[in-house]
Design a protein around this nucleic acid. Structure first.
Length: 792
RNA sequence: GGGCUCGUAGUUCAGUGGUUAGAACGCCACGUUUACAACGUGGAGGUCGACGGUUCGAUCCCGUUCGGGCCCACCA
């Protein structure tokens, strides 16, 4: 036993990590008692920070706890390695543009780079001690995921849930690509509100205020509120669009706010979401004047070729010249921009694939009811999102690196041709349909779009359950016990997974959903490369240890965000040192102990067993509702305050002075020490797996007949250990000890200094046989009388 | 504007309808004690964001309000 050595976390963590892998400790074996986890696949975007370590270790605490509770834990790992974030990562890393080097070459590079990045991610996750089964690794671009994602597409098409339609898309003119709503953010701009004069067919001048005069050539209607006294006489009239030679109709719609500007709105295709709703609702003309490069096209007449900002300037000049610009007021307003480049987005109309689901809102809300939410209030976000849904799910993206649609179109008749299920996965650009079209033609056009990555990542429970279409999959794995994830993607990942699961299996995908917060920088701000405030897990692991980092992550209540403070990691490191030292003391004094329970246990021993039993009960009930932080706090406080500060001090006399105190009293201490140390290590094992394994392996492997603490059994509450009398005696003794310590500290005495301690008869009776331990700890002579402490 | 959430010691956070509101870090004093100076013992430090209400009693429950955060909507 090498107990004199100081604990070296770097060495030990590497050693145990390799050991666990070699022993295949965490490999999943299906059994009768299973616990299945739908692990979030991190997006491959090149940046890993401490926030990732924060949320992934929280799942990990649960996985390790459940394993020790005897569950066969299904804990796969995955990567979300396609889609725009990955494309951007590869473009930046290789300093290329996807459009410039072409589809095929770009995909090749993406596959290369994601493979490299994944190895890096894997290394970090392993160094964190994440106990997933790496043989279950999945990736959303893998053949299996491509097959299932395409299968999902085909099945939903067959169910009549999918349609393809010309529709407005969010478009970034800077990046020349369609983007999704998730990729938008708000940015405040200084702008001007321009009062422009329009003229009705009967020569009435009306004022319309706009921040986007360049969209005047895209005007397709004018809206006023039906109850607007000032303006309702305009309804149904034709209005000439300034600078243009066409007219539009005035329509009544309650979404026009009479109090805003002049109360009259110009509807363009498209300036914002409201325009789209109006366009849809009134079947308006389509006048798209902005092209994919962000320039005005021929529909803008003489403004063709100008960029958006040039056109704005030019049109305002002309309006001024013609006296059609009544007033300009500076305003500040928020505009949706693309998060990657900060460019205000535009809406273009393109053909897209959709999943129809607005009719299923009630079912989705019901599904939310069926799930157990931890913490419960997170469910509100899910409900709130569903209630606010207004659009079907657009699942097509005009990108290169993603899962292709298994779809061709007949050149002759336009028929949609789907791939055969048995041929999946297919790449329509390389493969061809096996049969001729109904019309007899075999001339096809491949669908070039790729699927939204959420359309695939929403299948993770099905991918992991080896779903094969219809309801054919491993019912032991699906539905899963737990979906762990952070709160920012409740509306995306959690919601989309519920959608797909209901559509394919009519079941909710999990029993429980555990929502974690974010790990933030020390000021409580999100970590990002551009802000330069990233702290990586690697640097913290190197400087301290993975256990200490995990300690920090365990100290936050479920669902809360956590600013990263190095001092919290230091506290974890201190706990590790304390555990090592306390174990060193214990193991040194367990040498020669025969492991047998002595006939009678001493009072202080029964006291600590009782206390640990209480802690055990708490830990179990906290873990069962995913409150790992509370479990850790309970154990930590027991370990530090009761076990090391009081118990270890109390038994020293019995251990060191066997001849004076008797053989039984030493054996009693040893028996208890062994029990409590083992229990404490097990309790800490899910949070700090390395230090607990290190100490376990020094002494307990043979005793427990387990090759690792992580497959030993978690402490359980034991009725037999409840002992109210000994508990009361012990508490009283500890109370007196702390009074004595205070006395000595105030008198500036050494803790070893001898004193005379006067205790009332009643107190002495209450403390009972623990009085001998107390005497030794306090180095006191006991006399009887009114409570008093005196130096000698 | 809507939903949720947070506001407690210098800092980061626990916590409960009921004596005197806790921990860690930091600070101060003392102590070398055979697990631990990578430490121990003790101490100082709070109007529980503000205002009302319910209650015998509110940091906790209810209402209003102020301030921070997240999500959504708006952004003519």
């Amino acid at each position: 036993m090498n107990l004199l050595k100081r604990y070296n976390p770097q060495e030990a963590e590497k050693k145990w990590s390799e050991y666990w892998e070699k022993e295949k400790l965490f490999s999943f074996k299906p059994g009768s008692k299973m616990y299945t986890i739908d692990t979030p696949p991190p997006t491959i975007s090149g940046t890993i920070h401490i926030g990732h370590a924060f949320s992934y270790t929280q799942t990990e605490f649960i996985a390790r706890y459940k394993r020790m509770k005897g569950f066969s834990v299904f804990y796969p790992f995955g990567f979300d390695d396609n889609g725009l974030p990955t494309e951007k990562f590869v473009e930046n890393k290789r300093k290329i543009k996807a459009k410039e080097i072409g589809r095929e070459k770009f995909i090749k590079l993406c596959l290369e780079e994601t493979k490299k990045a994944e190895e890096e991610y894997k290394k970090i996750w392993k160094s964190l001690g994440i106990s997933c089964d790496w043989s279950l690794l999945y990736s959303t671009i893998s053949e299996k995921a491509r097959t299932m994602s395409q299968l999902s597409f085909i099945e939903l098409y067959e169910k009549g849930r999918e349609y393809r339609k010309q529709a407005p898309t969010i478009w970034c003119p800077e990046c020349h690509t369609a983007i999704s709503q998730v990729e938008l953010e708000d940015k405040e701009f200084n702008s001007t509100f321009n009062d422009v004069l329009f003229e009705t067919e009967d020569r009435e001048k009306i004022v319309i205020s706009t921040t986007r005069p360049e969209l005047i050539p895209a005007c397709v209607a004018i809206m006023v509120h039906p109850e607007d006294k000032k303006n309702k006489h305009l309804i149904g009239k034709k209005v000439k669009v300034p600078l243009m030679d066409y007219s539009v109709e005035v329509i009544a719609d309650s979404r026009a706010d009479p109090e805003k500007g002049s109360g009259i709105v110009m509807t363009c295709t498209f300036g914002d979401q409201a325009d789209m709703e109006w366009w849809k609702a009134y079947n308006l003309d389509l006048r798209i004047i902005i092209d994919k490069e962000g320039k005005l096209n021929e529909k803008a007449g003489k403004f063709k070729g100008l960029s958006i900002l040039e056109a704005r300037k030019k049109i305002l000049e002309e309006l001024k010249e013609k006296n059609l610009l009544k007033e300009q007021r500076p305003i500040k307003h928020n505009v949706n921009v693309h998060e990657r480049c900060g460019t205000p987005i535009e809406f273009l109309v393109t053909k897209q694939w959709f999943i129809k689901y607005l009719d299923l809102k009630e079912d989705f809300l019901k599904a939310g009811e069926e799930l157990n939410w931890f913490p419960s209030f997170m469910k509100h976000r899910f409900d709130n999102w569903i209630k606010g849904l207004q659009w079907d799910w657009c699942i097509s993206r005009q990108r290169f690196y993603g899962i292709p649609f298994p779809v061709w179109y007949c050149k002759k008749c336009g028929e949609i041709i789907l791939a055969q299920k048995k041929d999946l996965p297919v790449d329509p650009l390389k493969d061809s349909p096996k049969k001729k079209c109904k019309c007899g033609s075999s001339d096809f056009v491949a669908e070039k779009d790729v699927l939204d990555t959420w359309a695939t990542s929403s299948l993770t429970p099905l991918i992991n359950a080896n779903w094969k279409g219809s309801s054919n999959f491993d019912k032991k794995i699906f539905p899963m016990n737990l979906r762990p994830q952070a709160h920012d993607i409740i509306t995306f990942w959690a919601f989309n997974t519920v959608v797909k699961s209901l559509l394919h299996t009519k079941k909710v995908p999990w029993k429980d959903i555990m929502i974690s917060g974010w790990g933030l920088d020390s000021k409580g701000k999100k970590m990002s490369k551009s802000k330069g405030n990233i702290v990586t897990p690697q640097e913290i692991i190197e400087k301290y240890s993975a256990d200490a980092l995990r300690y920090w992550a365990s100290s936050i209540n479920l669902g809360n965000d956590a600013p990263f403070q190095e001092k919290d990691v230091q506290t974890g490191q201190r706990l590790i040192t304390k555990l090592w030292n306390a174990s060193k003391f214990s193991l040194m004094n367990l040498e020669g102990f025969d492991g047998k329970k002595p006939k009678e246990l001493e009072v202080m021993d029964k006291w600590i067993l009782h206390k640990f039993n209480e802690v055990t009960e708490k830990m179990n009930s906290h873990y069962d509702v995913y409150e790992y932080g509370k479990a850790k706090t309970a154990l930590e406080s027991f370990f530090w305050n009761d076990f090391t500060d009081n118990y270890l001090e109390a038994i020293k006399d019995r251990i060191y002075n066997e001849e004076k105190r008797g053989k039984n009293s030493k054996a009693s201490a040893q028996y208890t020490l062994e029990k409590i140390l083992l229990g404490t290590l097990k309790g800490f094992a899910p949070i700090m797996p390395f230090i607990s394994e290190e100490i376990f392996q020094l002494y307990f492997t043979k005793k427990e007949k387990k090759k690792s603490i992580h497959i030993s059994s978690f402490p359980e509450f034991d009725k037999k250990l409840v002992n109210k009398n000994s508990f009361d005696s012990g508490e009283k003794a500890v109370e007196i000890i702390s009074k004595v310590r205070k006395f000595k500290a105030e008198k500036q005495l050494s803790m070893k200094a001898e004193i005379e301690l006067t205790l009332e008869k009643e107190t002495q009776q209450k403390i009972g046989k623990a009085l001998d331990d107390l005497k030794a700890v306090c180095n006191a002579k006991i006399t009887t009388g009114e409570f008093k402490i005196k130096t000698i």
